[in-house]
Every structure is written in C-alpha cells, then in structure tokens.
Simulated scan of single mutants.
Amino acid sequence: MSKLSLTLACGNYEIVRALKEGAVQPEGIDLNILTDMDSTTRHWRFLRQEQFDVAEVSISSYIVSRDRGMPFRSIPVFLHRRFRHGFIFINTTKGITKPTDLIGRRVGVKSYQVSAILWLRGMLEHEYGVPHKSIEWFSELDEDVEFTPPEGLRLTKIADDKSIETMLAEGEIDALLHPDIIDPILDKDPRVGLLFPDYKAEEIAYYKKTGIFPIMHTMGFKAELVERFPWIVPNLYKAFEEAKAIAMKRLFNPRVVPLAWYQNAWEEQEEVLGKDPWQYGMTPLNVKNLETVVGYSHEQGLIKRRIPLDELFLSVSEGRKRGHFRA
C-alpha cells in the first residue's frame, strides 16, 4: 500500500534527527525532509510561495497569516524556543545602560514581524516599561506576511545597500533587536555591546516570574492538505513527540556532546525549567506562552483581534484514554 508523500521543511535539530534519519516514521506518510535553509528563507518560501506541505514557521508570522485568512494551519509542535534578553544590542557610545534608555531612540530590527522581535518588544513594554511606540524602528528585511504599520508606529525600511548591523556599529541607530548573534559581537567590536551583560540572570528571573520559555516557531501545514487528509495531524504529532523522546534520551548521556561542563548545564536547565521545557501540545505552560504572544501581536498592531488558540491550532487528540493498545 502506497504512503502519502509529504515535503517537510524544518531546522536540522537533534529533536528531529530520528525523523530525518528514518528511525521514526509517521504511519502512512513518506517524508521528504529539507533542512538546508535558514529560518527566514524557509518562512518566506512557505508563507509566500507555499513550497512545502509542512514547515517549521515563525509563530509570529503564522499568527499574522491566520489573521489575514491565509491557507495555513498548525499543530502544537514547537521545535524552536529561545530566551531573548541576550539579543538586545546597543551602541556603546550612546549612554544606554538600562531598558528605559531606549525610549525615544532609533532601534533597528532584522524585520518587524519576526518572532524574536515580537517577543522582545512585548517584554520591553510589559516587563521594563518601554512602550513599543516610544521607539523609532528601522527594519532590514521585508516581512513574511504583508504588513501595514498601524497609526502611531514609526517604522522605516532601510535601503537594500545598507546593513542594520553596520548601522548599529557606526551609530546611525542606537540599538538593535535581532534573532541572531550579530557580527559586531562575534568580532568583539568595542562599539557594540549588550543591554543586559548578564542576560542569563535576566532570563532566569523572567522565567521564574512568568513561567514562559518563549516559543519562536510552530509547525505549519497547508490548509488544503489537512482538509483532504485529516488523519495526518495526529500521526505527524505523534512522530514529532517520538523523535523528541529519542533525542532527549540520547542527549542525557554527556559523552555525546563535546562540552566540558555539559552535565552541569543539563542539570541546571532541569532545575530551572523542569523536566520537559521543550514540551509540545496545549499544556498549561504552552497555553500561557501562546496567549501571551497572541496578546503581544494584537497590542502591537500585527493582528486585528486576539485569535483564540483553538482557531490557531488543530486538535491532536485521539480521544480521552485512547491512543494506546491494550495487550
């Protein structure tokens, strides 16, 4: 009997390794897995051109796509999470020493809509008293989904021949929110530093206060695919869960990772974030996480209404007390 062939685009993560290598195979599905592209390219190709059947996609852009009625759905599989306090970069000559020093400043972003930046704007506003409209924003890339800035938002797209990272180093902008570690930091350029030098302490304090380990990406589907083959939803969800379980079992052995103090890092993560900080599904912690990011998207004018989570995420339930064979 032939299987349904699907193309899946995602990051090359340890938690999907078993799927990529075929150790886990979703029942009835033959996956063609693509991992050789950066996140922004993958998101663009999925949301703008629908090149993949299933794709890891920006949670921010996915929420916007649903608000626009675009033909995508999602399951609660979150391959990428990251705390973001360490991704606020400053020009060291501008006298910026605390978050409120960003008020009234010129601040760059890779793109305005990207998940990391959505989270950071929300955190700055709600945790540190920096309203997002108090800043003049400069973006480098076009957005995953078309976006018209709401009234009162000052947002300028820089020229194609300019670099937002160079603008920061040369003082054309005062700060930069970015999803990646930027080149001036890697090059140890003294003109560029971090708003939070001890960002790890800030992130731990944030988690202890909020219980949020920010979700960056979700697993998107073409809507027509779900309509035609609804059975793929629980089957793929279970496959992602199984692949993650295999990865975590493997990573528990410190010999597999070439880091001197890896065991200490593993134990510290568990102490702070619990047994399964990378959990999938609509768990209480994930619900709070997702309601927060939807709220930020609405407050910042990316979406017109606070979309209920049951509209954003497909149910992966197989029924209460079902899903396991009885011997």
Rank of each mutant, 00 (worst) to 15 (best):
F240D: 04
L236N: 01
P197G: 07
A205D: 14
D198Y: 03
P258Q: 06
N235C: 03
F240E: 02
V226I: 11
K238T: 11
L225A: 05
L251M: 09
V256E: 05
F196Y: 10
F252R: 14
A239D: 03
Y207G: 08
I232D: 02
T210D: 09
D198M: 11
Y237M: 03
E202M: 12
I232E: 09
A201N: 10
E227W: 01
Y206D: 13
F196D: 07
V233A: 03
F196W: 06
E224P: 00
T210M: 08
E227M: 06
K249G: 10
L194I: 12
V192Q: 10
K222E: 12
Y206N: 12
P230G: 04
L236C: 04
K238C: 04
L225Y: 10
V256R: 06
L225R: 06
F213S: 11
Y207L: 13
K200V: 15
I232H: 06
W231V: 07
F221E: 03
N253T: 00
E241A: 06
F196S: 06
P230W: 00
E241Q: 04
K200E: 11
E203W: 13
K208T: 08
F229C: 15
F229M: 07
K238L: 02
P254E: 11
E224W: 10
Y199D: 09
F213T: 00
A201D: 13
H217I: 00
A223T: 09
R228Y: 02
F229L: 14
G220E: 04
I232R: 01
T210P: 07
L194P: 01
I215C: 00
Y207F: 15
M248H: 13
F252K: 11
K238E: 11
P197H: 02
E242T: 05
A243R: 01
K244I: 01
V226T: 03
E203F: 14
K200Y: 07
K222Y: 06
V256M: 08
I232T: 07
A239M: 02
T210Y: 05
K249E: 14
V233S: 03
F196Q: 04
M216G: 05
A201I: 13
M248C: 08
L195G: 14
K249C: 07
V233D: 01
E227I: 01
K244Y: 03
L251R: 11
I246Y: 08
H217Y: 15
M216S: 15
D189M: 07
A247K: 01
I246S: 05
G211R: 12
H217R: 07
N235I: 00
R228Q: 14
A223Q: 12
H217T: 15
G193C: 08
P234T: 12
W231A: 12
K238V: 02
F221W: 05
P230H: 05
K244W: 01
L195P: 08
I246A: 14
L251K: 06
V257M: 12
F229Q: 14
K209P: 07
L225N: 03
